[in-house]
Amino acid sequence: MRNTYLNALYELAKKDEEVVSLVADNGLIVYDDFRRDFPERYFNFGISEGNMITAAAGMASCGKIPFVYTISAFLAYRAYEFLRDDVCFQNQNVKIVGIGSGLTYSTLGPSHHTTEDIGLLRSLPNLTVFSPSTRAEVKWIMEETYKMKGPVYIRLSNNSEEYYKEDAEFVIGQPAVVRAGNSVIIMVTGALVNEVMEAAERLESDGIYAEVVSVHTLKPLDTKKIAEMIAKAGSLVVVEEHNVIGGLYSAIAEVMAMEKIMVPNLAIGLQDVFAVDYGQLKDVRAANGLDSTTIYEKIKLFFDSI
Protein backbone atom coordinates (compact mmCIF):
# COMPACT_ATOMS: atom_id res chain seq x y z
CA MET A 1 0.00 0.00 0.00
CA ARG A 2 2.76 2.42 0.97
CA ASN A 3 4.61 1.91 -2.30
CA THR A 4 1.40 2.38 -4.26
CA TYR A 5 0.91 5.67 -2.44
CA LEU A 6 4.49 6.77 -3.10
CA ASN A 7 4.30 5.88 -6.79
CA ALA A 8 1.06 7.81 -7.13
CA LEU A 9 2.56 10.80 -5.31
CA TYR A 10 5.60 10.73 -7.58
CA GLU A 11 3.37 10.77 -10.67
CA LEU A 12 1.33 13.67 -9.29
CA ALA A 13 4.49 15.63 -8.54
CA LYS A 14 5.67 15.03 -12.10
CA LYS A 15 2.38 16.32 -13.45
CA ASP A 16 1.80 19.29 -11.13
CA GLU A 17 4.59 21.42 -9.72
CA GLU A 18 2.36 22.68 -6.90
CA VAL A 19 2.46 19.21 -5.32
CA VAL A 20 4.83 19.27 -2.34
CA SER A 21 5.81 16.61 0.13
CA LEU A 22 6.16 17.09 3.89
CA VAL A 23 7.44 14.40 6.24
CA ALA A 24 8.25 14.27 9.94
CA ASP A 25 11.47 12.26 10.12
CA ASN A 26 9.83 9.36 8.38
CA GLY A 27 10.22 7.70 4.99
CA LEU A 28 13.94 6.97 4.73
CA ILE A 29 14.68 5.13 1.46
CA VAL A 30 11.03 4.98 0.40
CA TYR A 31 11.07 8.71 -0.40
CA ASP A 32 14.39 8.51 -2.26
CA ASP A 33 12.93 8.90 -5.75
CA PHE A 34 10.89 11.93 -4.74
CA ARG A 35 13.85 13.52 -2.96
CA ARG A 36 16.17 12.88 -5.89
CA ASP A 37 13.84 14.26 -8.57
CA PHE A 38 11.98 16.99 -6.66
CA PRO A 39 14.39 18.11 -3.91
CA GLU A 40 12.97 21.65 -3.84
CA ARG A 41 9.53 20.21 -3.08
CA TYR A 42 10.53 17.88 -0.28
CA PHE A 43 10.48 19.17 3.32
CA ASN A 44 11.47 17.16 6.35
CA PHE A 45 10.01 18.95 9.37
CA GLY A 46 11.71 16.68 11.85
CA ILE A 47 9.83 15.34 14.81
CA SER A 48 7.24 18.11 14.98
CA GLU A 49 3.95 16.90 13.58
CA GLY A 50 1.79 19.81 14.77
CA ASN A 51 4.15 22.34 13.21
CA MET A 52 4.25 20.33 9.99
CA ILE A 53 0.46 20.13 9.70
CA THR A 54 -0.01 23.85 10.23
CA ALA A 55 2.88 24.79 7.95
CA ALA A 56 1.19 22.62 5.32
CA ALA A 57 -1.98 24.67 5.83
CA GLY A 58 0.06 27.85 5.31
CA MET A 59 1.55 26.43 2.12
CA ALA A 60 -1.89 25.41 0.89
CA SER A 61 -3.15 28.95 1.52
CA CYS A 62 -0.60 30.01 -1.13
CA GLY A 63 -1.79 27.45 -3.68
CA LYS A 64 0.56 24.55 -2.90
CA ILE A 65 -0.86 21.03 -2.63
CA PRO A 66 0.91 19.51 0.35
CA PHE A 67 0.95 15.77 0.98
CA VAL A 68 1.86 15.32 4.62
CA TYR A 69 3.16 11.91 5.59
CA THR A 70 4.09 10.23 8.82
CA ILE A 71 2.97 7.61 11.36
CA SER A 72 -0.78 7.95 11.77
CA ALA A 73 -0.75 7.97 15.58
CA PHE A 74 1.32 11.16 15.57
CA LEU A 75 -0.91 12.81 12.99
CA ALA A 76 -4.28 11.90 14.42
CA TYR A 77 -3.43 12.34 18.10
CA ARG A 78 -0.42 14.62 18.52
CA ALA A 79 -1.38 17.01 15.77
CA TYR A 80 -5.16 16.90 16.21
CA GLU A 81 -5.76 20.51 17.22
CA PHE A 82 -3.52 21.75 14.40
CA LEU A 83 -5.44 19.57 11.98
CA ARG A 84 -8.71 20.89 13.36
CA ASP A 85 -7.98 24.62 13.55
CA ASP A 86 -5.60 25.17 10.68
CA VAL A 87 -6.46 22.54 8.06
CA CYS A 88 -10.15 21.77 8.61
CA PHE A 89 -11.55 25.01 10.05
CA GLN A 90 -9.64 27.02 7.44
CA ASN A 91 -10.62 24.41 4.84
CA GLN A 92 -7.16 24.17 3.33
CA ASN A 93 -6.19 21.87 0.50
CA VAL A 94 -3.92 19.65 2.61
CA LYS A 95 -3.65 15.89 2.09
CA ILE A 96 -2.68 13.96 5.17
CA VAL A 97 -1.37 10.44 4.85
CA GLY A 98 -1.04 8.35 7.98
CA ILE A 99 0.97 5.15 7.75
CA GLY A 100 0.92 2.16 10.06
CA SER A 101 -2.72 2.62 11.03
CA GLY A 102 -4.58 0.27 13.34
CA LEU A 103 -2.29 -2.32 14.93
CA THR A 104 0.34 -2.27 12.16
CA TYR A 105 3.17 -1.39 14.58
CA SER A 106 2.44 -4.62 16.40
CA THR A 107 5.71 -4.83 18.29
CA LEU A 108 5.49 -1.28 19.65
CA GLY A 109 2.21 -1.24 21.55
CA PRO A 110 -0.59 1.33 21.93
CA SER A 111 1.62 4.45 21.68
CA HIS A 112 2.03 3.54 18.01
CA HIS A 113 -1.44 2.08 17.39
CA THR A 114 -4.32 4.06 15.98
CA THR A 115 -7.45 2.49 17.38
CA GLU A 116 -9.48 5.64 18.15
CA ASP A 117 -8.54 7.80 15.16
CA ILE A 118 -11.61 7.09 13.02
CA GLY A 119 -13.86 8.66 15.64
CA LEU A 120 -11.61 11.68 15.96
CA LEU A 121 -11.15 12.25 12.25
CA ARG A 122 -14.71 11.57 11.11
CA SER A 123 -15.96 14.26 13.46
CA LEU A 124 -13.85 16.99 11.84
CA PRO A 125 -15.94 19.16 9.48
CA ASN A 126 -14.60 19.57 5.91
CA LEU A 127 -12.35 16.49 6.20
CA THR A 128 -12.78 13.58 3.79
CA VAL A 129 -11.53 10.33 5.36
CA PHE A 130 -10.34 7.39 3.29
CA SER A 131 -9.25 4.02 4.63
CA PRO A 132 -8.14 1.76 1.77
CA SER A 133 -8.02 -2.01 2.04
CA THR A 134 -5.94 -2.85 -1.02
CA ARG A 135 -3.50 -1.31 -3.47
CA ALA A 136 -6.21 -0.80 -6.09
CA GLU A 137 -8.14 1.31 -3.61
CA VAL A 138 -5.02 3.34 -2.74
CA LYS A 139 -4.43 4.09 -6.42
CA TRP A 140 -8.01 5.24 -6.92
CA ILE A 141 -8.02 7.23 -3.68
CA MET A 142 -4.90 9.13 -4.73
CA GLU A 143 -6.60 10.15 -7.98
CA GLU A 144 -9.70 11.32 -6.11
CA THR A 145 -7.65 13.06 -3.43
CA TYR A 146 -5.76 15.10 -6.00
CA LYS A 147 -9.00 16.08 -7.77
CA MET A 148 -10.67 17.27 -4.57
CA LYS A 149 -10.00 20.78 -3.33
CA GLY A 150 -10.04 20.48 0.43
CA PRO A 151 -8.62 18.51 3.33
CA VAL A 152 -8.27 14.74 2.97
CA TYR A 153 -7.00 12.11 5.39
CA ILE A 154 -5.78 8.76 4.06
CA ARG A 155 -5.50 6.01 6.67
CA LEU A 156 -2.90 3.58 5.33
CA SER A 157 -2.16 0.18 6.78
CA ASN A 158 -0.16 -2.79 5.51
CA ASN A 159 -1.60 -5.15 2.96
CA SER A 160 -0.08 -6.76 -0.09
CA GLU A 161 -3.10 -8.89 -1.04
CA GLU A 162 -5.19 -7.67 -3.96
CA TYR A 163 -8.78 -8.88 -4.24
CA TYR A 164 -10.08 -6.66 -7.02
CA LYS A 165 -9.96 -7.31 -10.74
CA GLU A 166 -8.05 -4.75 -12.78
CA ASP A 167 -11.21 -3.09 -14.07
CA ALA A 168 -12.75 -2.63 -10.62
CA GLU A 169 -14.52 0.70 -10.20
CA PHE A 170 -14.97 2.60 -6.97
CA VAL A 171 -17.33 5.35 -5.87
CA ILE A 172 -16.69 7.77 -3.02
CA GLY A 173 -18.86 6.88 -0.03
CA GLN A 174 -19.96 3.50 -1.35
CA PRO A 175 -18.41 0.35 0.13
CA ALA A 176 -16.82 -1.84 -2.54
CA VAL A 177 -17.69 -5.51 -2.84
CA VAL A 178 -14.57 -7.58 -2.27
CA ARG A 179 -16.39 -10.91 -2.16
CA ALA A 180 -19.94 -11.67 -3.20
CA GLY A 181 -22.36 -13.54 -0.91
CA ASN A 182 -25.96 -13.51 0.26
CA SER A 183 -26.06 -14.91 3.82
CA VAL A 184 -24.65 -11.96 5.75
CA ILE A 185 -22.77 -8.77 4.94
CA ILE A 186 -19.39 -8.15 6.58
CA MET A 187 -18.15 -4.57 6.53
CA VAL A 188 -14.47 -3.99 7.11
CA THR A 189 -11.99 -1.21 6.56
CA GLY A 190 -8.24 -1.26 5.92
CA ALA A 191 -5.82 -4.16 5.81
CA LEU A 192 -7.91 -6.24 8.21
CA VAL A 193 -9.77 -7.30 5.07
CA ASN A 194 -7.21 -10.16 4.89
CA GLU A 195 -8.42 -11.75 8.12
CA VAL A 196 -12.04 -11.21 7.11
CA MET A 197 -11.51 -12.84 3.72
CA GLU A 198 -9.96 -15.89 5.38
CA ALA A 199 -12.88 -16.05 7.81
CA ALA A 200 -15.34 -15.76 4.92
CA GLU A 201 -13.72 -18.73 3.16
CA ARG A 202 -14.17 -20.86 6.27
CA LEU A 203 -17.76 -19.70 6.71
CA GLU A 204 -18.47 -20.86 3.17
CA SER A 205 -17.45 -24.39 4.05
CA ASP A 206 -20.17 -24.20 6.73
CA GLY A 207 -22.70 -23.08 4.12
CA ILE A 208 -22.61 -19.40 5.14
CA TYR A 209 -22.04 -17.21 2.11
CA ALA A 210 -20.71 -13.92 3.43
CA GLU A 211 -20.55 -10.81 1.32
CA VAL A 212 -17.40 -8.87 2.25
CA VAL A 213 -17.33 -5.15 1.54
CA SER A 214 -14.51 -2.69 2.03
CA VAL A 215 -15.58 0.64 3.50
CA HIS A 216 -12.79 2.59 1.80
CA THR A 217 -14.48 5.93 2.45
CA LEU A 218 -15.23 6.64 6.10
CA LYS A 219 -16.54 10.13 5.34
CA PRO A 220 -18.65 11.00 3.46
CA LEU A 221 -20.83 7.89 3.55
CA ASP A 222 -23.47 7.19 0.95
CA THR A 223 -26.09 6.40 3.57
CA LYS A 224 -28.76 5.30 1.09
CA LYS A 225 -26.45 2.87 -0.67
CA ILE A 226 -25.13 1.43 2.62
CA ALA A 227 -28.65 1.05 4.03
CA GLU A 228 -29.68 -0.71 0.85
CA MET A 229 -26.74 -3.14 1.12
CA ILE A 230 -27.53 -3.91 4.76
CA ALA A 231 -31.25 -4.32 4.18
CA LYS A 232 -30.60 -6.67 1.26
CA ALA A 233 -28.24 -8.84 3.34
CA GLY A 234 -30.60 -8.99 6.33
CA SER A 235 -27.79 -9.26 8.89
CA LEU A 236 -24.60 -7.33 9.44
CA VAL A 237 -21.15 -7.83 10.90
CA VAL A 238 -18.70 -4.94 11.25
CA VAL A 239 -15.04 -5.83 11.78
CA GLU A 240 -12.45 -3.22 12.60
CA GLU A 241 -8.96 -2.73 13.97
CA HIS A 242 -10.34 0.10 16.10
CA ASN A 243 -12.38 0.72 19.21
CA VAL A 244 -15.99 -0.22 18.47
CA ILE A 245 -16.86 3.14 20.06
CA GLY A 246 -16.44 5.87 17.46
CA GLY A 247 -15.16 3.60 14.73
CA LEU A 248 -16.67 1.87 11.72
CA TYR A 249 -19.39 0.17 13.77
CA SER A 250 -20.49 3.54 15.14
CA ALA A 251 -20.49 5.04 11.65
CA ILE A 252 -22.62 2.21 10.27
CA ALA A 253 -24.94 2.37 13.29
CA GLU A 254 -25.46 6.06 12.51
CA VAL A 255 -26.42 5.12 8.96
CA MET A 256 -28.89 2.51 10.20
CA ALA A 257 -30.49 5.00 12.59
CA MET A 258 -30.65 7.74 9.96
CA GLU A 259 -32.07 5.45 7.31
CA LYS A 260 -34.42 3.73 9.80
CA ILE A 261 -33.30 0.16 9.19
CA MET A 262 -32.52 -2.41 11.82
CA VAL A 263 -31.07 -5.86 11.24
CA PRO A 264 -29.33 -8.27 13.62
CA ASN A 265 -25.76 -7.03 13.88
CA LEU A 266 -22.43 -7.81 15.46
CA ALA A 267 -19.45 -5.56 16.21
CA ILE A 268 -16.02 -7.18 16.16
CA GLY A 269 -13.29 -4.80 17.25
CA LEU A 270 -11.61 -3.52 20.38
CA GLN A 271 -14.29 -3.38 23.07
CA ASP A 272 -13.31 -0.02 24.57
CA VAL A 273 -9.82 -1.18 25.47
CA PHE A 274 -6.30 -0.54 24.24
CA ALA A 275 -4.87 -3.47 22.32
CA VAL A 276 -2.82 -5.93 24.38
CA ASP A 277 0.36 -7.90 23.68
CA TYR A 278 3.27 -7.68 21.23
CA GLY A 279 4.54 -9.72 18.32
CA GLN A 280 3.89 -9.98 14.61
CA LEU A 281 0.68 -8.37 13.36
CA LYS A 282 -0.93 -11.83 13.23
CA ASP A 283 -0.06 -12.40 16.90
CA VAL A 284 -1.42 -9.07 18.10
CA ARG A 285 -4.58 -9.46 16.08
CA ALA A 286 -5.06 -12.91 17.63
CA ALA A 287 -4.42 -11.58 21.13
CA ASN A 288 -7.17 -9.04 20.56
CA GLY A 289 -9.71 -11.28 18.88
CA LEU A 290 -9.11 -9.92 15.39
CA ASP A 291 -7.54 -12.96 13.72
CA SER A 292 -9.41 -14.89 11.05
CA THR A 293 -10.17 -17.83 13.37
CA THR A 294 -11.78 -15.69 16.07
CA ILE A 295 -13.63 -13.62 13.47
CA TYR A 296 -14.89 -16.85 11.87
CA GLU A 297 -16.00 -18.28 15.23
CA LYS A 298 -17.78 -15.11 16.30
CA ILE A 299 -19.63 -14.78 12.99
CA LYS A 300 -20.58 -18.47 13.02
CA LEU A 301 -22.01 -18.13 16.52
CA PHE A 302 -23.82 -14.92 15.57
CA PHE A 303 -25.24 -16.41 12.39
CA ASP A 304 -26.46 -19.52 14.18
CA SER A 305 -28.19 -17.39 16.82
CA ILE A 306 -30.32 -15.33 14.42
Partner: peptide, 25 residues
Protein backbone atom coordinates in the same frame (compact mmCIF):
# COMPACT_ATOMS: atom_id res chain seq x y z
CA UNK B 1 -7.23 38.66 8.00
CA UNK B 2 -4.81 35.99 6.89
CA UNK B 3 -5.41 33.23 9.43
CA UNK B 4 -7.97 31.90 11.86
CA UNK B 5 -6.21 32.14 15.17
CA UNK B 6 -7.36 32.00 18.77
CA UNK B 7 -5.78 28.86 20.08
CA UNK B 8 -2.29 30.09 20.90
CA UNK B 9 0.81 28.59 19.34
CA UNK B 10 -0.51 28.12 15.80
CA UNK B 11 0.29 31.35 13.94
CA UNK B 12 4.03 30.91 13.62
CA UNK B 13 3.73 27.47 12.03
CA UNK B 14 1.18 28.87 9.59
CA UNK B 15 3.55 31.74 8.80
CA UNK B 16 6.41 29.28 8.27
CA UNK B 17 4.32 27.46 5.66
CA UNK B 18 3.45 30.70 3.89
CA UNK B 19 7.07 31.87 3.99
CA UNK B 20 8.24 28.59 2.43
CA UNK B 21 5.60 28.80 -0.31
CA UNK B 22 6.46 32.44 -1.08
CA UNK B 23 10.15 31.60 -1.32
CA UNK B 24 9.36 28.71 -3.67
CA UNK B 25 7.45 31.17 -5.85
Amino acid sequence: IEASTGSLGHGLSFGVGIAIACKMN
